[in-house]
Design a protein around this nucleic acid. Structure first.
Lengths: 104, 104
DNA sequence: CCCTTATTTCTGTATATCTAGAACTATGGC
DNA sequence: GCCATAGTTCTAGATATACAGAAATAAGGG
């Protein structure tokens, strides 16, 4: 992964509202969520949400698909996987250093 | 991990210069690097580097330790592990979706 | 004590971000 | 065509960031 893309994605996630938006979508899974439903969950004005969504979409972390009148948003898992792989530097890091962070 | 800390760490990493700094330190490993050596590698003015280092330190991603006249910087692995764990949402994500990102 | 090396803090400026109301566009039903 | 619903784009102002030169601080040597 390119350093620049990673930086832009990290910056996109490095905002409390956008991080909440992204996590909400990630938890929603494959079905995604319409913008309206997302707005009710994160509770920000529509224009603000739209702005943040735009940034997440620009970095490839989120995708939108129109279904009739509603726009369904989804977290793009491969993008996050690549980003995590980038941060992990190909697994060079020690995984079991801390008491938490273990995957069952 | 708290959402707010994660957001601040992601924002800290979401800048090209800081990401380069962090990666340089991560690659340097346990021995770390003095600020001066870091400066030569990333090639930014000392004041700019100091500013960026300060932000990385504030979020807990980097630590400094004085050794006589030089300040040695190190990447804090547990912090990055926790952040990766946070992004991974406890391993709910599909790991083998992409062609890359597999750890040997 | 002064000097040198190492690094930070101060300062100012240009630029980008965040926020949100208002106006606009898109889609479908009647 | 017109209306309602769903979202976006426009606009603007407050705030934060990035950058880098200059001045200040820290530590050790002579």
């Amino acid at each position: 992964m390119e350093l620049e893309l990673a930086a832009r994605q990290l910056e996109a996630l490095g905002n409390l509202t956008r991080l909440r938006v992204y996590r909400t979508l990630a938890r929603a899974g494959r079905d995604g969520l319409p913008v309206g439903a997302l707005q009710r969950r994160v509770d920000v004005p529509a224009s603000t949400l739209s702005h943040h969504l735009h940034r997440l979409i620009q970095t490839g972390l989120v995708a939108q698909e129109r279904q009739a009148t509603t726009l369904v948003c989804r977290a793009v898992d491969p993008a996050m996987n690549a980003l995590i792989g980038f941060l992990d530097e190909g697994g060079h890091r020690e995984r079991s250093a801390g008491p938490a962070s273990m995957s069952a």
